[in-house]
Write a protein that binds this DNA or RNA. Structure first.
Length: 161
DNA sequence: GCCAACGTTGGC
DNA sequence: GCCAACGTTGGC
């Protein structure tokens, strides 16, 4: 598809590999997992307002020995209420949310492939990625937008360009 | 395990 | 509606 017709947006989504690694996602039925547990309004709003089926996703492993990009995924849609917020036994339980006024949403993410690890140090070497959200000091947001330019630079790194 | 940075809470 | 206190995130 010509780049001019490519209306995808791009995202970076963090997951702890202990919970949902790229390998785990790839081994799920249809390689698709529900992106549960988002408990930040900005991240929720990205899911609710901006994500479209087919958008590209950089699959990030966080809170681990070597944080970085470990795979490529796509937004598979099916935006819905995140059931984990109502379950007191769930680590993502939110006592302030209620079924008649749910706070949190989930959607499906389909893993496409594992990549070689693109670690933070390597990403920081790329001047074109200097403004990438995930590389900014103090960034904690688990879902961040990725620009088309950043996406292309990362594709290039993965292809050895 | 540390701790800087950030988002949320709640008293006022 | 301000803002100090608190809890959490996540790289290091």
């Amino acid at each position: 598809m010509p780049a001019s017709q490519d209306t995808r947006r791009f995202w970076l989504m963090k997951n702890e590999p202990d919970e949902y690694s790229i390998d785990h996602a790839l081994s799920a039925p249809d390689a698709t997992i529900a992106w549960n547990g988002v408990r930040n309004y900005q991240a929720r709003n990205f899911m609710r307002d901006d994500m479209q089926v087919g958008d590209g996703v950089l699959y990030w492993h966080s809170s681990c020995a070597e944080p970085g990009i470990y795979g490529i995924a796509r937004i598979a849609g099916n935006l819905r209420v995140d059931p984990s917020q109502f379950d007191p036994a769930d680590p993502y339980y939110d006592p302030k949310s209620s079924p008649d006024k749910p706070r949190w949403l989930t959607l499906d993410v389909q893993a496409l492939r594992k990549t070689r690890p693109l670690l933070i140090a390597e990403l920081r070497e790329q001047p074109a990625l200097a403004h990438m959200r995930v590389l900014q000091k103090g960034n904690r947001l688990s879902i961040t937008p990725v620009s088309t330019e950043e996406w292309q630079v990362i594709e290039g790194l993965l292809q050895g360009r």
